[in-house]
């Protein structure tokens, strides 16, 4: 049987005297699109960072692709791409040059400008320093695609994007999934994100509150917070 892409049991992460994440049991299968939702500071980014092996866990067990990060860090990292808050880019280089560096360091051949076309950045030869926040996000997305991961971890994929960018994210997530890539995203745009995901997890103050089909995510959110989910701006009446 193929191992779970993500398996955690009793996963906890502490920053100093504060538990940012606690008692989390999670199983994500290959090819799933999984949504992590919660308010700001609720532990979404902490969870993604632990899954991305950026920071170690404090307690509990974690295995990725059936491997423990302590033993097989390099092999795990080769399979993972992480869309973090910081874009992980060189500000003085252009979009194409940033991707070029990535390909060389991965030892892969550069597929040329097709990736940049996909994210709508093929006409920008200037350095990243002059890009807007949304354009950096698009470039970070190109970076994730370029890594051809088996597990893509996306932290606020809709953040800083325009409505057209929202559609683009949906398209790119579909594309990742069609390659068999497992997608885990964290977002507080529950309405938007739950439409493209299969399953969802709701965390509050680092504790898991609900897990279930993404279709019910909005109801779970409403139940917990006693009001409707925040909607993407362009859909507001």
């Amino acid at each position: 049987m193929e191992p779970m892409v993500v398996h955690t049991s009793g996963l906890c992460r502490r920053f100093g005297g504060r538990w940012a994440l606690s008692r989390l049991d999670l199983d994500i299968q290959a090819g799933e699109k999984f949504l992590i939702m919660g308010e700001n500071g609720g532990g979404k980014t902490t969870l993604l960072s632990v899954l991305a092996t950026v920071i170690p866990r404090s307690r509990g067990s974690l295995s990725l692709f059936g491997m423990e990060p302590e033993r097989h860090l390099t092999r795990i990292r080769q399979k993972i791409a992480f869309l973090a808050h910081l874009p992980s880019l060189y500000e003085d280089l252009s979009a194409a040059e940033n991707l070029g560096i990535l390909f060389r360091l991965m030892g892969a051949s550069n597929p040329g400008s097709s990736l940049l076309e996909q994210v709508g950045l093929d006409d920008r030869p200037d350095p990243v320093r002059s890009y807007s926040a949304g354009m950096r996000k698009r470039l970070s997305f190109a970076r994730v695609l370029a890594q051809r991961p088996d597990l893509a971890l996306l932290d606020e994929p809709f953040g800083q994007l325009d409505p057209e960018g929202f559609n683009l994210v949906e398209l790119l997530v579909e594309q990742l999934a069609s390659r068999g890539c497992t997608v885990v995203m964290a977002s507080h745009l529950v309405d938007r994100a739950s439409r493209i995901c299969d399953r969802a997890l709701l965390i509050q103050k680092g504790l898991p509150r609900w897990q279930g089909p993404a279709a019910s995510a909005s109801r779970a959110w409403g139940l917990l917070y006693g009001h409707e989910v925040p909607r993407a701006r362009e859909q507001a009446p």
Binding site: A84, L86, S88, L89, Q147
Partner: peptide, 17 residues
């Protein structure tokens, strides 16, 4: 500072380099 201002170093280590 090139490496740290936009998190490039973390990105490199995750590649993994």
């Amino acid at each position: 500072q090139q490496e740290t201002e936009a998190g490039a170093l973390d990105g490199l280590l995750l590649l993994p380099v």
